[in-house]
Amino acid sequence: MLYIWLYPFHTEYSFLNVFRYLSFRIIYAAVTAFLIAFVLAPWLIRKLQEIKLGQQIRDDGPKRHLAKSGTPTMGGLLIIFAVLLSTLLWADITRPYVWLVMIATLGFGAIGFADDYLKFIKARSRGLTAGQKFSAQVGIALLIAVALYFTPGYTTKLSVPFFKNIMPDLGWFYIVFVVLVIVGSSNAVNLTDGLDGLAIGPVMIASLAYTIVAYVAGHRIMSDYLLIPHIDGAGEIAIFTAAILGSSLGFLWFNAYPATVFMGDVGSLPLGAALGTVAVISKHELLLLMVGGVFVIEAISVIFQVLSFKSRGKRIFLMAPIHHHFEMKGWEEPKVVVRLWIIAILLALLSLSTLKLR
């Protein structure tokens, strides 16, 4: 909104010309989101404590986690608020892609809120049923997929990392593919959110990587030079991902070990969906497998564990998701978190290299 309100006056006040520069707005979107999250977090934590909205800890996990029972949860509300407000302030809200990513965030945030709220009022570790949650996720993702499919000029071709001449056209199946990307990303981040600071770290790293990807995809000269699809208006999505980065940094201050607040499903589900939606809009859907490699590893560990137990009656890991496996092997929680962050950074760097190695 600041762009729309203030930039028209740049002819009279030359300093307002800075609003035309996307890089300026990206930086200040991140700073704004950080300040919102950092300043409001103590107030939110106190309110959550007052209403005794604390996390219910599963009793079949590492016993040390039982001490976390009652820690305020639903801190993801703060992340969503900071991301959306910062995006509205700094992005060009006349761009439809900006609204699509915000709809994805709000929609999946509503699902997460309902799930967390049911856990709270029923004092149990499970909220919505798997069927209810999955159906709602598919419904919102389908809405986004159909909107993209019928957007004029939007292509259903896939950009394959490392290859410039391989761009398969999925046609109408692209709608199904988009749903899989968004829902899969949402649930993968949700599964990763099991240790203090574990999920928010890779979210920050992935959002930074996609800030660069979206900026390049929206820049005609850069995208042509790097031989990647140019998406008109995708640059504004970089403001949204920068807001995710900033709000996540502010939240991490309070979510770092030992955490004083958890994000809950109201945070993890929309953050995953947001990253999936950004990956789709920027036409780097497959790159998400690499950028969000930690999330993929966590999700695959759960899938393999379930398949192995049902087919052979044996478990592959001591406990799934895989971060609990390392805990059960004796790793301290901060060590598990930091090492997975290191992996996330390396994968993000490798992912960004694909912009040039084509």
Rank of each mutant, 00 (worst) to 15 (best):
I200D: 10
I27E: 11
K164T: 14
S14V: 12
I4N: 10
N17C: 09
L85Q: 10
A188C: 09
L289K: 08
S301K: 11
Y21K: 04
S301F: 11
P8T: 10
K314L: 04
V39N: 00
Y174L: 00
A188H: 03
V338D: 03
V101Y: 03
L77H: 09
V179S: 00
W99D: 01
I345V: 14
W43F: 03
T277D: 00
V183Q: 00
T94S: 02
V83M: 13
Y174C: 00
E333R: 08
V294F: 06
M102P: 00
L318V: 05
I200H: 02
F38Q: 02
G201T: 12
V138I: 11
L78H: 09
I27H: 12
L288A: 06
F173L: 11
L89N: 13
G293R: 13
G267W: 07
Y257C: 15
N190Y: 05
V291N: 07
P152G: 01
V146C: 07
A29F: 08
A30E: 11
L208W: 10
A91F: 04
F163V: 15
K314P: 09
H325R: 15
R25P: 01
M222S: 15
I212R: 15
W331Q: 12
A33F: 13
L118G: 07
F326L: 04
E285S: 08
T11G: 08
V296T: 14
A147E: 06
A82S: 07
A234P: 14
V296M: 15
L289W: 01
F163Q: 15
Q137L: 08
G75P: 00
Y154N: 02
I45W: 13
G201C: 13
L44P: 03
L288F: 02
G293E: 00
N165Y: 02
S247Q: 08
S311Y: 05
A141R: 03
I36E: 04
D59A: 10
A348V: 02
W43N: 14
A29Y: 09
G112R: 13
Q305K: 13
G292F: 07
S248V: 13
P258C: 03
Y149H: 09
Y154V: 06
L78G: 09
W172L: 07
V291L: 01
I281V: 07
D232F: 12
A130C: 03
F295I: 04
I51P: 05
F113D: 06
F134Y: 07
A33M: 09
A242S: 15
T211G: 00
L288G: 04
I322R: 10
F304V: 08
T129E: 03
V266G: 15
L89E: 07
A29K: 01
V138R: 10
G127M: 02
S353R: 14
L180T: 09
L275G: 01
L355Y: 09
G131Y: 05
I281W: 14
G139N: 15
L158V: 12
G250S: 10
A130N: 07
G246E: 06
L85Y: 10
Y225K: 15
R46E: 10
R20Y: 04
L6A: 12
P152C: 03
L357C: 07
I231G: 00
A82R: 06
I4S: 11
D116S: 14
S353Y: 13
E50W: 13
A130W: 04
A33Y: 03
G276T: 09
